[in-house]
């Protein structure tokens, strides 16, 4: 944050337009470069969440899948807070995926075993 941004915020003014331009550009270029339109991205997001939630229980409200761009490289960044691991037929795979959630999830919790 620059001094100008700080004063703008203090006075409740609109931020300087260069910042707005930069942010809008970064967003539109991330989409341009990946050739994904927002609709496709949304579909991909849903499918990713669907696949991930087969293995672990995720916080759908906090979950975020987005495109980030730096130095002409666009990355798909998924931030999916895990509530707990789902018990699977092969317990090793799910538990390995996220050690933090594995420790918080009681072993053999729930009866929704995947057949």
């Amino acid at each position: 944050m620059t001094l100008r941004d700080f004063i703008d915020k203090l006075l409740g003014r609109q931020p300087a337009s260069a910042n707005v331009a930069r942010e809008r550009l970064q967003l539109v270029l991330a989409h341009d470069r990946s050739d994904l339109n927002p609709e496709l991205l949304e579909q991909m997001r849903r499918e990713i969440l669907e696949v991930v939630s087969r293995y672990v229980e995720i916080d759908l409200d906090e979950g975020d899948v987005s495109l980030e761009t730096e130095d002409r490289v666009t990355a798909l960044v998924a931030n999916l807070p895990i509530k707990r691991a789902r018990p699977l037929a092969e317990p090793g795979t799910a538990a390995d995926a996220d050690p933090a959630s594995a420790s918080s999830a009681p072993a053999g919790d729930g009866a929704i075993a995947t057949a």
Binding site: T2, R4, A16, S17, A18, N19, A21, R22, L25, Q26, L29, D71, R72
Partner: peptide, 16 residues
Amino acid sequence: ANQEMLSVSDVTDILA
């Protein structure tokens, strides 16, 4: 200088 135009580094960073 008034931050009402993309700066030189904004453009060079974005276009790399």
